[in-house]
Amino acid sequence: MKEPHSSQDNSTASSYSLVLFDGVCRFCNGWVQFLIRRDSADRFRFSAIQSDYAQALLSQSCTGGKPLPDSIIVIENGTVYTHSAAVLRIFRQLGRGWPLLYGFILVPRPLRDAAYRWIAKRRYAIFGKYDSCMVPTEQVRRKFFG
Score class of each variant (00 low, 15 high):
F91M: 14
F46T: 00
F104G: 06
I49A: 15
R45A: 10
F104R: 01
G95N: 09
V87Q: 08
R109Y: 06
S47V: 04
E76C: 11
F44T: 01
R109Q: 08
R112A: 04
Y53Q: 13
P110Y: 03
Y53C: 15
A115T: 00
D70H: 10
F46S: 05
A114G: 02
L111T: 01
K66N: 12
T63G: 12
H83E: 02
K66Q: 15
G64H: 10
P110S: 02
L94W: 06
I90V: 14
A115F: 04
G65R: 12
V107S: 04
G97W: 07
L58T: 01
A85V: 05
R112Q: 00
V107D: 06
S51W: 09
H83R: 14
Q55R: 15
L88N: 07
F104L: 15
F104P: 08
V74I: 12
L94D: 05
F91Q: 09
G78V: 05
Q55N: 03
S51G: 06
P108G: 04
C62A: 13
P108A: 07
Q55K: 15
I105W: 09
R96S: 11
D70L: 13
F46D: 01
I105L: 13
Y102W: 14
A86M: 11
S61T: 04
G97E: 01
F104Q: 00
R109I: 04
A85K: 07
G65V: 06
D52K: 14
R96A: 03
V80Y: 01
T63Y: 09
Q93I: 05
P67E: 04
G97F: 11
L106C: 10
V107H: 01
S59D: 00
L111A: 07
P69I: 08
R45L: 10
Y116E: 07
Y102Q: 09
I105N: 10
P67F: 11
I49K: 15
S61Q: 15
L57T: 01
P110W: 12
S84Q: 05
T63K: 13
V80M: 10
P108I: 04
T79C: 11
